[in-house]
């Protein structure tokens, strides 16, 4: 990948994917499996916290993660297309962090 906007786009993309996947791993494998007994000592209503995350909470988080991804990537795509146009018209390419 030789041109700057493309490299920039791919790096930002990887950053988004990695941060969302670490949340994915944390909620499912860490909270839902490894630390489930510890979290079970907390209760809300009729649920033990660990049990609830394992059987319901994690699924809600998964849904939210995908929609956050959709939002961030749409924004990133728009920026890339804009940068490409600017590059074509001879203007400078913005290089600030766009994923945050």
């Amino acid at each position: 990948m030789t041109d700057k906007p493309a490299r920039h786009y791919w790096r930002a993309n990887l950053r988004i994917v990695l941060s969302l996947l670490s949340i994915w791993f944390f909620i499912s494998f860490v909270c839902g499996i490894l630390l489930v007994d510890l979290l079970d000592t907390f209760r809300f209503g009729g649920f033990k916290l660990g049990f609830w995350i394992a059987q319901q909470g994690a699924i809600f988080v998964f849904v939210v993660l995908i929609f956050v991804y959709i939002y961030l990537m749409d924004k990133l795509d728009d920026e890339y297309q804009l940068n490409n146009k600017r590059k074509d018209s001879g203007q400078d390419v913005a290089d600030e962090d766009t994923s945050s």
């Binding site: 996947l21 839902g32 994690a58």
Partner: peptide, 20 residues
């Protein structure tokens, strides 16, 4: 509670599918 592997396993895969 062990049945959770079906619940998380069959939904968490969509995060991988969507992102990767």
């Amino acid at each position: 509670r062990d049945g959770t592997f079906y619940l998380m396993g069959w939904t968490g895969g969509y995060v991988l599918l969507a992102l990767l």
